[in-house]
Amino acid sequence: MPLFWKLLCGVWVAGVIVAAFLGVGPAVGFRAPEAARILFFHVPTAWLAVLGFVLSMLHGIHYLHRRQLEHDRCSAVAAELGFLFCLLATVTGAIFAHVQWGAAWNWDPRETSIVALLLIYGAYFALRSAIDDEERRAALSASYAILAVLPMLFLIFVLPRVVDSLHPSDTVQSGGMSPSYRLVFFAALFGFTLLFVWIYRLRVGVERLALRREG
């Protein structure tokens, strides 16, 4: 990644952290208004967990089309990063759920989805480690990554309509957030996505070098 983007990422994320704690006031309407600041970090991690998952699937489709091992490595790297952010999202979510709703875990549809995502990532890595042949591992794990998208679609889009959710999914879209909160929120989304891209490109570079050395 060019130096400009690295510098921008560092300054931007630092700015977001400062703004999250000093730039905006406590959020009204929450049980613990000060604790609501966690949403600037919780929502981006959840978004990156999903981004890693989707990237992994897209590289899986690429692999099945082109049969280039590079795509398989990209798929695995995206899954690794997605798993990391999925863990962070689960932990930050449980902390905030404990503060806001009184219990760390309620099996609300969003919580179910994030657990499903964690289990899918776990199964994906277990599958990868159980197959020795490199090309077979690539094809089978790509197939699993594609297949695993389908239950996620159900959990994210269908389930919240069937079961009541505690998550305020409409607040962001319908403008329920105050302008200053919204600004920091989207800045945080952008900053963390930039960080994700940076780590991703570094890891993919390492995998490319490893591939070149092997073959």
Binding site: A116, A126, A130, S143, Y144
Partner: peptide, 27 residues
């Protein structure tokens, strides 16, 4: 079909199938 050629497939089968089946089990 996915795990037919993997090692330790007995344990893998449940682990791979469960996340896919979550929406089905809930309903």
């Amino acid at each position: 079909a996915l795990i037919a050629k993997a090692a330790a497939r007995g344990a893998l089968f449940g682990g791979l199938a469960f996340p896919l089946l979550l929406p089905l089990l809930l309903a």
